[in-house]
Design a protein around this nucleic acid. Sequence first.
DNA 1: CGACGTGTTGATCTCTCTCAATTAGAGTGG
DNA 2: CCACTCTAATTGAGAGAGATCAACACGTCG
Lengths: 243, 243
Amino acid sequence: MTPCEQCPLRQLPLFIPHSDDELALVRSIKRRELRVAAGDTLIHEGQTDAPLYTLLDGWAFRFKSLSDGRRQILNFLLAGDFIGVQQKMGDAAAHGVTTLTDSLFCVFQRDALWEIHQRQPAMGFNVTWLTAHEESLVDDNLLSVGRRSAEERIATLLILLYKRSLALHPGGGTDGVPFPLTQQHIADGLGLSLVHTNKTMRKLERRGLHRIRDGRLYLRDVRALARLADVFGDGRPPMRPFI
Amino acid sequence: MTPCEQCPLRQLPLFIPHSDDELALVRSIKRRELRVAAGDTLIHEGQTDAPLYTLLDGWAFRFKSLSDGRRQILNFLLAGDFIGVQQKMGDAAAHGVTTLTDSLFCVFQRDALWEIHQRQPAMGFNVTWLTAHEESLVDDNLLSVGRRSAEERIATLLILLYKRSLALHPGGGTDGVPFPLTQQHIADGLGLSLVHTNKTMRKLERRGLHRIRDGRLYLRDVRALARLADVFGDGRPPMRPFI
DNA sequence: CGACGTGTTGATCTCTCTCAATTAGAGTGG
DNA sequence: CCACTCTAATTGAGAGAGATCAACACGTCG
Protein backbone atom coordinates (compact mmCIF):
# COMPACT_ATOMS: atom_id res chain seq x y z
CA MET A 1 0.00 0.00 0.00
CA THR A 2 1.33 3.37 -0.99
CA PRO A 3 2.24 5.40 2.08
CA CYS A 4 0.27 8.62 2.25
CA GLU A 5 3.47 10.61 1.92
CA GLN A 6 3.74 9.25 -1.60
CA CYS A 7 0.08 9.61 -2.42
CA PRO A 8 -0.18 10.20 -6.16
CA LEU A 9 -2.49 13.14 -5.54
CA ARG A 10 0.18 14.97 -3.59
CA GLN A 11 2.30 15.15 -6.72
CA LEU A 12 -0.35 17.11 -8.57
CA PRO A 13 -0.22 20.90 -8.44
CA LEU A 14 -4.03 20.99 -8.41
CA PHE A 15 -4.21 19.91 -4.80
CA ILE A 16 -3.56 21.89 -1.64
CA PRO A 17 -0.85 20.25 0.47
CA HIS A 18 -1.59 18.76 3.87
CA SER A 19 0.05 19.82 7.08
CA ASP A 20 1.98 17.17 8.99
CA ASP A 21 -0.88 16.71 11.44
CA GLU A 22 -3.37 16.30 8.65
CA LEU A 23 -1.17 13.79 6.93
CA ALA A 24 -0.90 11.82 10.16
CA LEU A 25 -4.66 11.79 10.49
CA VAL A 26 -5.18 10.59 6.95
CA ARG A 27 -2.59 7.89 7.48
CA SER A 28 -4.45 6.70 10.58
CA ILE A 29 -7.86 6.43 8.95
CA LYS A 30 -6.71 4.89 5.68
CA ARG A 31 -7.43 1.18 5.67
CA ARG A 32 -6.22 -0.03 2.29
CA GLU A 33 -6.13 0.55 -1.40
CA LEU A 34 -8.47 -0.99 -3.88
CA ARG A 35 -7.90 -1.61 -7.54
CA VAL A 36 -11.03 -1.85 -9.63
CA ALA A 37 -11.24 -2.81 -13.28
CA ALA A 38 -12.95 -0.61 -15.85
CA GLY A 39 -16.72 -0.99 -15.80
CA ASP A 40 -16.93 -2.50 -12.33
CA THR A 41 -19.33 -1.19 -9.75
CA LEU A 42 -17.69 0.05 -6.56
CA ILE A 43 -20.93 0.94 -4.77
CA HIS A 44 -24.31 -0.51 -5.63
CA GLU A 45 -27.49 1.50 -5.30
CA GLY A 46 -29.12 0.68 -2.01
CA GLN A 47 -25.97 -0.86 -0.58
CA THR A 48 -25.65 -0.30 3.15
CA ASP A 49 -22.53 0.58 5.09
CA ALA A 50 -20.36 1.43 2.13
CA PRO A 51 -17.07 2.90 3.29
CA LEU A 52 -15.57 6.21 2.28
CA TYR A 53 -13.19 6.40 -0.64
CA THR A 54 -10.95 8.81 -2.40
CA LEU A 55 -10.40 8.21 -6.08
CA LEU A 56 -6.62 8.17 -6.44
CA ASP A 57 -6.39 7.36 -10.13
CA GLY A 58 -8.80 6.67 -12.95
CA TRP A 59 -12.31 7.79 -13.85
CA ALA A 60 -15.69 6.79 -12.44
CA PHE A 61 -19.23 8.12 -12.16
CA ARG A 62 -22.10 8.33 -9.71
CA PHE A 63 -25.55 7.30 -10.93
CA LYS A 64 -29.11 6.59 -9.91
CA SER A 65 -31.59 4.43 -11.75
CA LEU A 66 -35.25 3.55 -11.95
CA SER A 67 -36.59 0.05 -11.51
CA ASP A 68 -37.13 -0.40 -15.25
CA GLY A 69 -33.47 0.25 -15.97
CA ARG A 70 -33.45 3.90 -16.96
CA ARG A 71 -30.20 5.31 -15.64
CA GLN A 72 -29.04 8.83 -14.92
CA ILE A 73 -25.39 9.62 -14.37
CA LEU A 74 -25.20 12.35 -11.74
CA ASN A 75 -21.62 13.42 -12.21
CA PHE A 76 -18.25 12.09 -13.25
CA LEU A 77 -15.49 11.39 -10.75
CA LEU A 78 -11.83 12.12 -11.37
CA ALA A 79 -8.70 11.72 -9.26
CA GLY A 80 -9.10 13.54 -5.96
CA ASP A 81 -12.85 13.14 -5.69
CA PHE A 82 -14.12 12.02 -2.32
CA ILE A 83 -16.80 9.34 -2.45
CA GLY A 84 -19.47 8.29 -0.06
CA VAL A 85 -20.25 11.27 2.13
CA GLN A 86 -23.96 11.02 1.29
CA GLN A 87 -24.48 7.41 2.24
CA LYS A 88 -22.33 7.63 5.36
CA MET A 89 -24.83 10.14 6.61
CA GLY A 90 -27.68 7.75 6.62
CA ASP A 91 -27.95 4.18 5.79
CA ALA A 92 -28.36 2.95 2.25
CA ALA A 93 -26.42 4.45 -0.62
CA ALA A 94 -28.84 6.49 -2.68
CA HIS A 95 -26.60 6.20 -5.71
CA GLY A 96 -24.17 3.76 -7.27
CA VAL A 97 -20.57 4.31 -8.31
CA THR A 98 -19.07 2.58 -11.34
CA THR A 99 -15.64 2.95 -12.91
CA LEU A 100 -14.95 4.08 -16.46
CA THR A 101 -11.32 2.99 -16.43
CA ASP A 102 -9.14 0.76 -14.32
CA SER A 103 -9.02 2.76 -11.13
CA LEU A 104 -7.31 2.99 -7.78
CA PHE A 105 -9.21 3.93 -4.65
CA CYS A 106 -8.08 4.82 -1.16
CA VAL A 107 -10.41 3.13 1.34
CA PHE A 108 -11.09 4.74 4.70
CA GLN A 109 -12.51 3.26 7.85
CA ARG A 110 -16.22 3.67 8.41
CA ASP A 111 -16.10 6.42 11.00
CA ALA A 112 -13.45 8.36 9.09
CA LEU A 113 -15.80 11.25 8.51
CA TRP A 114 -16.30 11.79 12.20
CA GLU A 115 -12.60 11.31 12.98
CA ILE A 116 -11.71 13.94 10.43
CA HIS A 117 -14.10 16.50 11.85
CA GLN A 118 -13.15 15.69 15.41
CA ARG A 119 -9.40 15.58 15.12
CA GLN A 120 -8.71 18.10 12.35
CA PRO A 121 -11.42 20.73 12.02
CA ALA A 122 -9.60 22.23 9.06
CA MET A 123 -9.97 18.94 7.25
CA GLY A 124 -13.58 18.72 8.34
CA PHE A 125 -14.01 22.06 6.69
CA ASN A 126 -12.43 20.61 3.58
CA VAL A 127 -14.88 17.72 3.61
CA THR A 128 -17.68 20.26 3.63
CA TRP A 129 -15.94 22.08 0.79
CA LEU A 130 -15.65 18.93 -1.29
CA THR A 131 -19.27 18.03 -0.66
CA ALA A 132 -20.47 21.49 -1.58
CA HIS A 133 -18.26 21.45 -4.65
CA GLU A 134 -19.68 18.18 -5.84
CA GLU A 135 -23.16 19.52 -5.27
CA SER A 136 -22.36 22.47 -7.50
CA LEU A 137 -21.33 20.04 -10.24
CA VAL A 138 -24.69 18.34 -9.95
CA ASP A 139 -26.38 21.76 -9.97
CA ASP A 140 -24.64 22.59 -13.23
CA ASN A 141 -25.64 19.31 -14.75
CA LEU A 142 -29.23 19.78 -13.64
CA LEU A 143 -29.31 23.14 -15.38
CA SER A 144 -28.08 21.43 -18.53
CA VAL A 145 -30.49 18.55 -18.43
CA GLY A 146 -33.44 20.71 -17.49
CA ARG A 147 -32.95 23.68 -19.75
CA ARG A 148 -30.31 23.17 -22.42
CA SER A 149 -30.77 21.64 -25.88
CA ALA A 150 -28.89 18.48 -26.80
CA GLU A 151 -26.20 20.49 -28.60
CA GLU A 152 -25.78 22.82 -25.65
CA ARG A 153 -25.63 19.98 -23.15
CA ILE A 154 -22.88 18.23 -25.04
CA ALA A 155 -20.86 21.39 -25.47
CA THR A 156 -21.19 22.10 -21.76
CA LEU A 157 -20.10 18.62 -20.76
CA LEU A 158 -17.14 18.54 -23.13
CA ILE A 159 -15.85 21.85 -21.83
CA LEU A 160 -16.27 20.78 -18.22
CA LEU A 161 -14.55 17.44 -18.62
CA TYR A 162 -11.81 18.95 -20.74
CA LYS A 163 -11.01 21.40 -17.99
CA ARG A 164 -11.14 18.83 -15.25
CA SER A 165 -9.04 16.36 -17.17
CA LEU A 166 -6.53 19.02 -18.11
CA ALA A 167 -6.20 20.18 -14.52
CA LEU A 168 -4.91 16.71 -13.66
CA HIS A 169 -2.53 16.51 -16.62
CA PRO A 170 -0.65 19.78 -16.65
CA GLY A 171 1.43 18.65 -19.60
CA GLY A 172 -1.48 18.08 -21.97
CA GLY A 173 -3.45 20.55 -24.01
CA THR A 174 -2.25 20.51 -27.58
CA ASP A 175 -2.59 16.76 -27.91
CA GLY A 176 -5.93 16.60 -26.15
CA VAL A 177 -6.78 15.19 -22.76
CA PRO A 178 -7.73 11.68 -21.64
CA PHE A 179 -11.42 11.02 -22.21
CA PRO A 180 -12.68 7.52 -21.46
CA LEU A 181 -16.45 8.03 -21.82
CA THR A 182 -18.47 6.17 -24.40
CA GLN A 183 -21.42 7.87 -26.05
CA GLN A 184 -23.67 5.81 -23.79
CA HIS A 185 -22.13 7.47 -20.74
CA ILE A 186 -22.57 10.89 -22.27
CA ALA A 187 -26.20 10.09 -23.05
CA ASP A 188 -26.84 8.85 -19.51
CA GLY A 189 -25.14 11.90 -18.07
CA LEU A 190 -27.14 14.34 -20.13
CA GLY A 191 -30.56 12.72 -20.08
CA LEU A 192 -30.45 11.96 -23.81
CA SER A 193 -30.88 8.80 -25.85
CA LEU A 194 -27.81 7.11 -27.25
CA VAL A 195 -28.89 7.66 -30.84
CA HIS A 196 -29.59 11.35 -30.45
CA THR A 197 -26.33 11.80 -28.58
CA ASN A 198 -24.48 10.23 -31.46
CA LYS A 199 -26.18 12.33 -34.10
CA THR A 200 -25.64 15.53 -32.18
CA MET A 201 -21.98 14.80 -31.50
CA ARG A 202 -21.38 13.98 -35.16
CA LYS A 203 -22.92 17.32 -36.08
CA LEU A 204 -20.64 19.18 -33.68
CA GLU A 205 -17.64 17.25 -34.90
CA ARG A 206 -18.44 17.97 -38.56
CA ARG A 207 -18.69 21.65 -37.67
CA GLY A 208 -15.15 21.36 -36.35
CA LEU A 209 -15.94 22.04 -32.71
CA HIS A 210 -14.29 18.99 -31.23
CA ARG A 211 -12.79 15.62 -31.89
CA ILE A 212 -12.66 12.41 -29.89
CA ARG A 213 -10.07 9.87 -30.93
CA ASP A 214 -8.38 6.96 -29.22
CA GLY A 215 -9.71 7.90 -25.83
CA ARG A 216 -8.61 11.50 -26.03
CA LEU A 217 -10.71 14.64 -26.36
CA TYR A 218 -9.59 17.55 -28.53
CA LEU A 219 -11.42 20.87 -28.38
CA ARG A 220 -11.02 22.39 -31.83
CA ASP A 221 -13.13 25.50 -31.38
CA VAL A 222 -13.41 26.39 -27.73
CA ARG A 223 -15.03 29.71 -28.55
CA ALA A 224 -17.90 28.09 -30.40
CA LEU A 225 -18.32 25.45 -27.72
CA ALA A 226 -18.38 28.06 -24.97
CA ARG A 227 -20.97 30.04 -26.92
CA LEU A 228 -23.17 26.97 -27.07
CA ALA A 229 -22.60 26.18 -23.41
CA ASP A 230 -23.42 29.74 -22.34
CA VAL A 231 -21.12 29.56 -19.34
CA PHE A 232 -20.75 32.56 -17.08
CA GLY A 233 -17.30 32.94 -15.60
CA ASP A 234 -14.20 31.06 -16.60
CA GLY A 235 -10.52 30.66 -16.06
CA ARG A 236 -8.45 27.89 -14.58
CA PRO A 237 -9.95 25.89 -11.77
CA PRO A 238 -8.57 26.96 -8.38
CA MET A 239 -6.54 24.65 -6.21
CA ARG A 240 -8.67 22.38 -4.13
CA PRO A 241 -8.34 20.28 -0.99
CA PHE A 242 -8.44 16.50 -0.89
CA ILE A 243 -8.69 13.92 1.83
CA MET B 1 -34.36 39.37 17.33
CA THR B 2 -35.55 36.04 18.57
CA PRO B 3 -33.04 34.56 21.01
CA CYS B 4 -31.72 31.22 19.79
CA GLU B 5 -33.28 29.53 22.80
CA GLN B 6 -36.65 30.37 21.30
CA CYS B 7 -35.69 29.56 17.73
CA PRO B 8 -38.87 28.40 15.97
CA LEU B 9 -36.99 25.40 14.63
CA ARG B 10 -36.31 24.12 18.14
CA GLN B 11 -40.04 23.67 18.69
CA LEU B 12 -40.31 21.24 15.80
CA PRO B 13 -39.90 17.54 16.54
CA LEU B 14 -38.15 17.10 13.19
CA PHE B 15 -34.96 18.67 14.42
CA ILE B 16 -32.27 17.24 16.64
CA PRO B 17 -31.75 19.41 19.73
CA HIS B 18 -28.52 21.31 20.32
CA SER B 19 -26.30 20.86 23.33
CA ASP B 20 -25.70 23.93 25.49
CA ASP B 21 -22.28 24.47 23.94
CA GLU B 22 -23.69 24.25 20.46
CA LEU B 23 -26.44 26.68 21.30
CA ALA B 24 -23.84 29.10 22.65
CA LEU B 25 -21.88 28.84 19.44
CA VAL B 26 -24.91 29.49 17.27
CA ARG B 27 -25.84 32.46 19.41
CA SER B 28 -22.37 33.88 18.94
CA ILE B 29 -22.31 33.62 15.16
CA LYS B 30 -25.88 34.77 14.53
CA ARG B 31 -25.91 38.35 13.34
CA ARG B 32 -29.55 39.14 12.77
CA GLU B 33 -32.83 38.04 11.34
CA LEU B 34 -34.11 38.99 7.96
CA ARG B 35 -37.68 39.11 6.80
CA VAL B 36 -38.16 38.75 3.07
CA ALA B 37 -41.40 39.16 1.16
CA ALA B 38 -42.71 36.46 -1.16
CA GLY B 39 -41.01 36.50 -4.54
CA ASP B 40 -37.98 38.49 -3.45
CA THR B 41 -34.48 37.35 -4.27
CA LEU B 42 -32.28 36.74 -1.26
CA ILE B 43 -29.16 35.83 -3.23
CA HIS B 44 -28.53 36.83 -6.82
CA GLU B 45 -26.65 34.59 -9.21
CA GLY B 46 -23.07 35.74 -9.38
CA GLN B 47 -23.34 37.76 -6.18
CA THR B 48 -20.13 37.76 -4.18
CA ASP B 49 -19.71 37.46 -0.46
CA ALA B 50 -23.24 36.40 0.34
CA PRO B 51 -23.54 35.44 4.00
CA LEU B 52 -24.82 32.16 5.36
CA TYR B 53 -28.47 31.78 6.25
CA THR B 54 -30.82 29.34 7.84
CA LEU B 55 -34.39 29.45 6.65
CA LEU B 56 -36.41 29.78 9.85
CA ASP B 57 -39.85 30.06 8.33
CA GLY B 58 -41.36 30.10 4.86
CA TRP B 59 -40.48 28.55 1.52
CA ALA B 60 -37.80 29.42 -1.03
CA PHE B 61 -35.85 27.84 -3.86
CA ARG B 62 -32.36 27.72 -5.32
CA PHE B 63 -32.01 28.24 -9.06
CA LYS B 64 -29.56 28.77 -11.90
CA SER B 65 -30.29 30.40 -15.22
CA LEU B 66 -28.93 30.90 -18.70
CA SER B 67 -28.27 34.29 -20.22
CA ASP B 68 -31.40 34.15 -22.38
CA GLY B 69 -33.60 33.73 -19.33
CA ARG B 70 -34.16 29.99 -19.20
CA ARG B 71 -34.29 29.08 -15.55
CA GLN B 72 -33.85 25.82 -13.68
CA ILE B 73 -34.93 25.48 -10.07
CA LEU B 74 -32.42 23.19 -8.37
CA ASN B 75 -34.34 22.39 -5.20
CA PHE B 76 -36.90 23.86 -2.87
CA LEU B 77 -35.99 25.17 0.56
CA LEU B 78 -38.11 24.70 3.66
CA ALA B 79 -37.65 25.67 7.28
CA GLY B 80 -34.38 24.32 8.62
CA ASP B 81 -32.49 24.42 5.35
CA PHE B 82 -29.03 25.90 5.52
CA ILE B 83 -28.20 28.28 2.69
CA GLY B 84 -24.96 29.42 1.19
CA VAL B 85 -22.40 26.73 1.87
CA GLN B 86 -21.53 26.54 -1.82
CA GLN B 87 -20.76 30.18 -2.42
CA LYS B 88 -18.95 30.60 0.88
CA MET B 89 -16.48 28.11 -0.42
CA GLY B 90 -15.40 30.19 -3.29
CA ASP B 91 -16.34 33.58 -4.44
CA ALA B 92 -19.41 34.19 -6.52
CA ALA B 93 -22.69 32.47 -5.81
CA ALA B 94 -23.26 29.95 -8.56
CA HIS B 95 -26.99 29.99 -7.92
CA GLY B 96 -29.68 32.40 -6.80
CA VAL B 97 -32.15 32.03 -3.95
CA THR B 98 -35.69 33.42 -4.18
CA THR B 99 -38.58 33.14 -1.75
CA LEU B 100 -41.94 31.59 -2.50
CA THR B 101 -43.64 32.99 0.58
CA ASP B 102 -42.94 35.70 3.10
CA SER B 103 -39.98 34.21 4.89
CA LEU B 104 -37.76 34.62 7.88
CA PHE B 105 -34.04 33.97 7.70
CA CYS B 106 -31.35 33.70 10.32
CA VAL B 107 -28.25 35.53 9.11
CA PHE B 108 -24.79 34.36 10.19
CA GLN B 109 -21.48 36.15 10.08
CA ARG B 110 -19.28 35.51 7.08
CA ASP B 111 -16.79 33.18 8.71
CA ALA B 112 -19.50 31.22 10.52
CA LEU B 113 -18.70 28.09 8.59
CA TRP B 114 -15.16 28.06 9.83
CA GLU B 115 -16.15 28.97 13.38
CA ILE B 116 -18.59 26.08 13.47
CA HIS B 117 -16.03 23.54 12.32
CA GLN B 118 -13.36 24.94 14.57
CA ARG B 119 -15.30 25.35 17.78
CA GLN B 120 -17.85 22.53 17.59
CA PRO B 121 -16.69 19.64 15.40
CA ALA B 122 -20.01 17.90 15.96
CA MET B 123 -21.75 20.85 14.37
CA GLY B 124 -19.17 20.90 11.58
CA PHE B 125 -20.16 17.33 10.97
CA ASN B 126 -23.77 18.46 10.83
CA VAL B 127 -22.90 21.07 8.24
CA THR B 128 -21.40 18.33 6.12
CA TRP B 129 -24.53 16.28 6.72
CA LEU B 130 -26.80 19.11 5.62
CA THR B 131 -24.71 19.76 2.54
CA ALA B 132 -24.68 16.10 1.57
CA HIS B 133 -28.40 15.89 2.21
CA GLU B 134 -29.11 18.81 -0.05
CA GLU B 135 -26.93 17.25 -2.70
CA SER B 136 -29.00 14.11 -2.52
CA LEU B 137 -32.12 16.18 -3.14
CA VAL B 138 -30.51 17.59 -6.25
CA ASP B 139 -29.46 14.07 -7.26
CA ASP B 140 -33.06 12.92 -6.99
CA ASN B 141 -34.26 15.84 -9.02
CA LEU B 142 -31.63 15.22 -11.68
CA LEU B 143 -32.83 11.65 -12.01
CA SER B 144 -36.35 12.98 -12.52
CA VAL B 145 -35.44 15.62 -15.05
CA GLY B 146 -33.09 13.36 -16.95
CA ARG B 147 -35.05 10.14 -17.03
CA ARG B 148 -38.65 10.49 -15.91
CA SER B 149 -41.66 11.45 -18.06
CA ALA B 150 -43.61 14.60 -17.24
CA GLU B 151 -46.23 12.61 -15.34
CA GLU B 152 -43.60 10.79 -13.33
CA ARG B 153 -41.69 13.96 -12.54
CA ILE B 154 -44.75 15.68 -11.19
CA ALA B 155 -45.77 12.68 -9.10
CA THR B 156 -42.26 12.49 -7.68
CA LEU B 157 -42.17 16.16 -6.78
CA LEU B 158 -45.60 16.16 -5.19
CA ILE B 159 -44.72 13.22 -3.00
CA LEU B 160 -41.41 14.76 -1.97
CA LEU B 161 -42.84 18.15 -1.10
CA TYR B 162 -45.82 16.61 0.62
CA LYS B 163 -43.51 14.67 2.90
CA ARG B 164 -41.26 17.59 3.59
CA SER B 165 -44.13 19.94 4.25
CA LEU B 166 -45.85 17.41 6.47
CA ALA B 167 -42.70 16.83 8.49
CA LEU B 168 -42.81 20.48 9.50
CA HIS B 169 -46.53 20.47 10.30
CA PRO B 170 -47.11 17.39 12.42
CA GLY B 171 -50.78 18.27 12.86
CA GLY B 172 -51.64 18.26 9.16
CA GLY B 173 -52.35 15.34 6.90
CA THR B 174 -56.07 14.99 6.40
CA ASP B 175 -56.54 18.58 5.41
CA GLY B 176 -53.49 18.68 3.17
CA VAL B 177 -50.21 20.49 3.68
CA PRO B 178 -49.10 24.02 2.80
CA PHE B 179 -48.02 24.24 -0.83
CA PRO B 180 -47.09 27.67 -2.14
CA LEU B 181 -45.68 26.78 -5.58
CA THR B 182 -47.22 28.06 -8.77
CA GLN B 183 -47.23 25.86 -11.86
CA GLN B 184 -44.40 28.02 -13.19
CA HIS B 185 -42.23 26.97 -10.25
CA ILE B 186 -43.09 23.33 -10.80
CA ALA B 187 -42.24 23.67 -14.48
CA ASP B 188 -38.91 25.34 -13.70
CA GLY B 189 -38.13 22.71 -11.11
CA LEU B 190 -38.84 19.81 -13.43
CA GLY B 191 -37.42 21.09 -16.69
CA LEU B 192 -40.84 21.33 -18.33
CA SER B 193 -42.74 24.10 -20.07
CA LEU B 194 -45.50 25.83 -18.19
CA VAL B 195 -48.17 24.66 -20.61
CA HIS B 196 -47.17 21.04 -20.52
CA THR B 197 -46.95 21.15 -16.74
CA ASN B 198 -50.48 22.45 -16.58
CA LYS B 199 -51.87 19.84 -18.93
CA THR B 200 -50.11 17.01 -17.13
CA MET B 201 -51.22 18.18 -13.70
CA ARG B 202 -54.82 18.50 -14.85
CA LYS B 203 -54.64 14.96 -16.14
CA LEU B 204 -53.37 13.68 -12.78
CA GLU B 205 -55.97 15.68 -10.92
CA ARG B 206 -58.81 14.37 -13.11
CA ARG B 207 -57.57 10.86 -12.40
CA GLY B 208 -57.99 11.64 -8.73
CA LEU B 209 -54.33 11.45 -7.75
CA HIS B 210 -54.02 14.82 -6.11
CA ARG B 211 -55.61 18.18 -5.56
CA ILE B 212 -54.16 21.64 -5.05
CA ARG B 213 -56.48 24.23 -3.58
CA ASP B 214 -55.97 27.52 -1.77
CA GLY B 215 -52.26 26.95 -1.34
CA ARG B 216 -52.62 23.46 0.10
CA LEU B 217 -51.71 20.14 -1.45
CA TYR B 218 -53.87 17.05 -0.96
CA LEU B 219 -52.63 13.64 -2.04
CA ARG B 220 -55.74 11.70 -2.95
CA ASP B 221 -54.11 8.49 -4.17
CA VAL B 222 -50.66 8.13 -2.71
CA ARG B 223 -50.36 4.56 -4.01
CA ALA B 224 -50.86 5.63 -7.60
CA LEU B 225 -48.53 8.59 -7.21
CA ALA B 226 -45.82 6.42 -5.68
CA ARG B 227 -46.21 3.94 -8.52
CA LEU B 228 -45.64 6.74 -11.02
CA ALA B 229 -42.72 8.10 -9.06
CA ASP B 230 -41.07 4.68 -8.81
CA VAL B 231 -39.45 5.49 -5.50
CA PHE B 232 -37.31 2.88 -3.78
CA GLY B 233 -37.49 3.02 -0.03
CA ASP B 234 -39.93 5.04 2.03
CA GLY B 235 -41.13 5.86 5.48
CA ARG B 236 -41.02 8.96 7.59
CA PRO B 237 -38.06 11.25 7.17
CA PRO B 238 -35.55 10.80 10.03
CA MET B 239 -34.74 13.59 12.43
CA ARG B 240 -32.14 15.94 11.12
CA PRO B 241 -29.70 18.47 12.46
CA PHE B 242 -29.89 22.21 11.86
CA ILE B 243 -27.60 25.13 12.46
C1' DC C 1 -62.73 49.24 -14.26
C1' DG C 2 -58.45 47.93 -16.43
C1' DA C 3 -53.98 45.67 -15.41
C1' DC C 4 -51.81 41.75 -13.84
C1' DG C 5 -50.80 37.10 -12.21
C1' DT C 6 -52.22 32.43 -12.49
C1' DG C 7 -54.56 28.71 -14.44
C1' DT C 8 -56.62 26.42 -18.58
C1' DT C 9 -57.22 24.66 -23.24
C1' DG C 10 -56.69 23.97 -28.37
C1' DA C 11 -53.70 23.83 -32.44
C1' DT C 12 -49.49 23.21 -34.45
C1' DC C 13 -44.50 22.32 -34.58
C1' DT C 14 -40.14 20.12 -33.59
C1' DC C 15 -36.78 18.13 -30.98
C1' DT C 16 -35.75 13.94 -29.33
C1' DC C 17 -36.95 8.99 -28.89
C1' DT C 18 -37.57 4.39 -30.62
C1' DC C 19 -36.85 0.90 -33.97
C1' DA C 20 -33.87 -1.18 -37.28
C1' DA C 21 -29.55 -1.96 -39.76
C1' DT C 22 -24.93 -1.43 -40.93
C1' DT C 23 -19.92 -0.64 -40.13
C1' DA C 24 -15.59 -0.98 -37.77
C1' DG C 25 -12.33 -2.70 -34.38
C1' DA C 26 -10.81 -5.85 -30.67
C1' DG C 27 -10.64 -10.26 -28.84
C1' DT C 28 -11.06 -15.50 -29.23
C1' DG C 29 -10.92 -20.04 -30.70
C1' DG C 30 -10.05 -23.34 -34.34
C1' DC D 1 -5.12 -16.83 -41.00
C1' DC D 2 -10.05 -16.79 -40.76
C1' DA D 3 -14.79 -17.29 -38.91
C1' DC D 4 -17.24 -15.67 -34.86
C1' DT D 5 -18.58 -12.62 -31.25
C1' DC D 6 -18.99 -8.36 -28.75
C1' DT D 7 -18.79 -3.56 -28.02
C1' DA D 8 -19.07 1.08 -29.78
C1' DA D 9 -20.15 4.14 -33.34
C1' DT D 10 -23.18 5.42 -37.13
C1' DT D 11 -27.22 6.36 -40.03
C1' DG D 12 -32.10 6.37 -41.79
C1' DA D 13 -37.09 6.37 -41.00
C1' DG D 14 -41.07 7.03 -38.44
C1' DA D 15 -43.39 8.17 -34.01
C1' DG D 16 -44.30 10.88 -30.05
C1' DA D 17 -43.67 13.59 -25.86
C1' DG D 18 -43.29 17.97 -24.94
C1' DA D 19 -42.53 22.92 -26.75
C1' DT D 20 -44.44 26.97 -28.72
C1' DC D 21 -48.14 30.01 -30.12
C1' DA D 22 -52.57 31.91 -29.13
C1' DA D 23 -56.78 32.68 -26.52
C1' DC D 24 -59.56 32.91 -22.78
C1' DA D 25 -61.20 32.60 -17.75
C1' DC D 26 -60.92 34.13 -13.16
C1' DG D 27 -59.59 36.65 -9.00
C1' DT D 28 -57.11 40.41 -6.87
C1' DC D 29 -55.83 44.92 -6.51
C1' DG D 30 -54.93 49.83 -7.12
